[in-house]
Amino acid sequence: MCSYIIEKAKLVGTAKGPNGPWMKVDTANVYYDHPYEAQLDHALCVDFVCEAAGGRERVAIEISRESVLELMEKIKAALASGDASHTSAAACSLNGSQADVAALF
């Protein structure tokens, strides 16, 4: 590829590298191109940055196309199972009877 084309995703959250502090992130710069470090011809690269803070620091990944597809599936699975458990917990805490709550302990 070797183009400057990137996709930008707006985010709410934090990111952290191995030796750095947590940093707020508001944007993911996503591109599929020759990676800088990974020994792959092409890689899906994501730079997590905080544009509101100038965007100069980043937490970066470079992963293979196959890795991306598996990761996407795992993210969907994690969201689905998380949503299911959270919905269950919400129902218990907000709508359950005293007996339901007592049964949790």
Binding site: I6, Y31, E37, D47, G55, R56, E57, A60
Partner: peptide
Amino acid sequence: PGSPDDVGARVRAAGG
């Protein structure tokens, strides 16, 4: 300043 990869990432984010 910065490492070449970080500086390159900033340039890419700015559209080159």
